[in-house]
Design a protein around this nucleic acid. Structure first.
Lengths: 257, 257
DNA sequence: TACACTGTTTCATAGGATGAAAGCTAGTTC
DNA sequence: GAACTAGCTTTCATCCTATGAAACAGTGTA
């Protein structure tokens, strides 16, 4: 997933990025020894690079400690990046509308590697939460939005996405079933997720397309299997597809659906 | 502000970071020509680096365009950085408490260069907004939190912070007045901002100290000059100082105040 | 068709990034 | 308190990688 065709003259750049990327939800704090081992750099090199990152505010050493964490400059740029995604501004009212009319949670997500990233979220039942899920990622193959995004991604689905890791007993894990599902998604114009990510969670997603017809994001509604029963899916699929179409239109898409 | 003592063997790293940092609220989109000029790189170099950044998801070219914007990977890391700052988790209940008891907006901020960064925010009058200010920055010298943070920062206030740019007629602009103010802040243990950032906006801030006694963040309440009148300042200062102290304690600080 | 402009790729070169090794520092053991 | 250990920091000669000039390729404009 990382180097498809190495760009020459960029080793240092690659290395800094891999240092930054080492920080994750599971591992937000690293010491020099382990971090340099993790990304395969000599300690001297890692140290030199981290020193710059620290001085520039991209990483931070909690006072007293020599460990590294992501720093404030990362927050600044991250928030800016979030604001820059204009799908977000356009989609927000539709998310609100979906949450209001369906009573379920509504999500806007995009693809990052093999995962989907929550860009925006509006809770159902009118309670406007404070976006606690924004920034979260889920494995794409176990979500409705992920199916939608991968169904239209060029090439992305032609080769195994480093295995289809099961999240529940319902997660699609066979490659054949997966390609069939994507075909079906393309045909129907929406995707479902029936307890494939988490037991008791069901969702329905539709694609958002930009000016060029590229599927860049996906809209979904999801909720507890108790309320969001199977018989409601056609109704929800219709609502989500329509909402997603309106967003696509506002982004300049002039397509068939 | 950028290179105090250049670290040798890091030119490429510095350059990537300056490319990333070029993206700002005012200028979230760049084309190659202007961006390379802005950061003083040859187009070839800028192009090479941006190609890597793009392939790694740190920047993005909105489909069709050749312009650059910050990408999803930046969001991922930014959100992670935000979660990593543990002051935030500890301070949240106190922010809520301050907002509840004073009725004004409560903020948690930290220092980034010569600006303060809003890490967390709770609106007054019990209405829990969705953190629209989180990620915003303000010039440190024109805010109460900035005064608090700079008052305790080592060396930071010993030399002109690249000029004290006036935001209103009340902004401190003379270096002498500035150092006097900081002394006063250190003495009193809190800082005020009386329409120095924006006409009609008044705030009061106190320092949060970590285990090592370092002032790493600042707590403040602020609001309209109509409601937040001068006679309420002593009362608010007391409340903010106490709240900040409780946060400091929970971070392991065992100091005098 | 020529022109102007931005973006992309190539390639020889030199100057910068590299990692081994030595030097630190703080903590632990005997 | 001396010897040891483990992690962090700095140095420096060497070689390889990042560099930018220049050529090339697109795209729109006169």
């Amino acid at each position: 997933m990382t180097p498809p065709q190495p760009i020459p003259g960029t080793r240092a750049v690659q290395r800094v990025l891999s240092l930054l990327r080492a920080f994750s939800e599971e591992r937000p704090t690293w010491n020099l020894t382990e971090l340099s081992a993790e990304v395969g750099l000599s300690m001297a090199t890692a140290h030199r690079m981290l020193s710059v990152l620290e001085r520039e505010g991209f990483v931070v050493r909690p006072s007293g400690s020599t460990d590294f964490q992501l720093g404030p400059e990362m927050i600044v740029l991250g928030v800016l990046a979030l604001k820059t995604v204009d799908v977000r501004a356009v989609a927000r009212p539709e998310l609100q509308f979906l949450a209001d009319t369906t009573g379920e949670d509504a999500y806007l997500e995009s693809l990052v590697g093999t995962e989907v990233l929550v860009l925006e979220e509006v809770r159902g039942r009118g309670l406007l939460g404070l976006g606690t899920e924004v920034g979260t990622r889920w494995p794409a193959h176990a979500t409705a939005t992920g199916k939608v995004l991968l169904a239209d991604a060029e090439g992305a689905m032609t080769e195994p996405v480093e295995g289809l890791h099961p999240m529940t007993a319902h997660t699609i894990t066979s490659w054949e079933k997966w390609t069939d599902t994507l075909s079906e998604v393309r045909e129907k114009g929406y995707a479902t997720n029936i307890e494939e990510l988490e037991y008791g969670f069901i969702s329905v997603a539709a694609p958002i397309r930009d000016r060029e017809g590229q599927t860049t994001a996906s809209l979904s509604v999801g909720g507890s299997a108790h309320r969001l029963t199977m018989d409601r899916i056609p109704e929800l699929a219709k609502a989500v597809k329509e909402a997603a179409s309106r967003v696509s239109e506002r982004l300049g898409y002039r397509g068939s659906d």
